[in-house]
């Protein structure tokens, strides 16, 4: 009887733990939004976070975008050319980058480059009791530390995704036109004919906004929730990257199902 009780409660424990954590995350999000006004009234704080999350991620985003676009062009050319459709390479590269790869890969890179840094910073501030010290001085740590980091991430993410897509298309152009010798005019004009601004580009931007929200919330939450030990911070950082990746991919599926169904 005792054994059965233990087994069932062992099953229940992770469920209640997850629910408690989800509830905490939701209340945390509300707290961030409530204190956003005070945080945004001092734009210097948010600007500093855009610098950390956005500007310092530009290099990795631009280089990865370029390489992803070049690989897409090489692989796409190989396949399309079998059907005599090599001139549609521009469409293939642009659509796959703008709709999917731009927001998703930029989101994954952003989570591992900026998200993990945010988690580690907040976690360490908590472990060294800087957050508690702020509260002692009647400074709200959510308004002073968490909200600027959150908004910095939300603002940076769509810009980074747009840069990723643009660089990828430029990489595709380098390979397709300069290396493989496709006609430059038909490369761009076919791309323009097939890519719709509202349907493809704007939906990609909306996707990256969603990812920015998700990754920023996960990063600040994991940092704030981390046990104040060296090990706690390291697991929290890992969890930020893993959870962000899963959430980005799942969200991407849901958003794609809503945006591109039946078109």
């Amino acid at each position: 009887m005792k054994l059965l009780f233990d087994l069932v409660s062992r099953l229940g424990q992770p469920v209640t733990n997850t629910l408690i954590k989800l509830g905490f995350a939701a209340r945390f999000q509300l707290a961030i939004l409530r204190h956003s006004a005070t945080a945004l009234l001092r734009p210097q704080l948010t600007l500093r976070e855009i610098w950390f999350a956005g500007v310092l991620s530009v290099l990795i985003i631009v280089v990865s975008g370029l390489f992803v676009g070049m690989v897409l062009a090489l692989q796409g050319y190989d396949t399309l050319q079998r059907f005599g459709a090599a001139s549609s390479l521009g469409i293939l590269v642009a659509l796959s980058l703008v709709r999917e790869l731009g927001p998703v890969v930029a989101g994954l890179l952003f989570a591992s480059r900026a998200g993990s840094a945010i988690t580690a910073e907040i976690g360490l501030m908590k472990a060294t009791e800087q957050l508690a010290a702020m509260e002692m001085m009647a400074v709200n740590p959510i308004a002073r530390v968490v909200a600027p980091k959150f908004w910095g991430g939300v603002i940076s993410m769509p810009l980074l995704a747009a840069m990723f897509s643009a660089m990828g298309i430029f990489g595709g152009y380098l390979i397709g036109v300069q290396l493989l010798g496709l006609d430059e005019g038909s490369f761009w004009s076919q791309m323009q004919g097939a890519v719709d601004f509202r349907l493809d580009v704007m939906n990609g931007v909306i996707k990256s906004l969603f990812f920015g929200f998700a990754v920023s919330l996960i990063a600040v939450f994991e940092g704030y929730d981390a046990p104040p030990t060296a090990e706690g911070i390291s697991t929290a950082t890992t969890r930020t990257v893993v959870t962000s990746a899963l959430v980005i991919l799942a969200l991407d599926f849901i958003l794609t199902a809503f945006m591109f169904r039946g078109v």
Binding site: V98, A166, F197
Partner: peptide
């Protein structure tokens, strides 16, 4: 300065996507 440059670059990328890559289908 760098944040301003970053936002400008992001906007430029969006403009590139809007003007060079896509067309107003509707």
């Amino acid at each position: 300065f760098w944040v301003g440059l970053f936002v400008l670059a992001g906007m430029a990328a969006l403009m590139f996507l809007a003007l060079k890559v896509s067309s107003q289908g509707n």
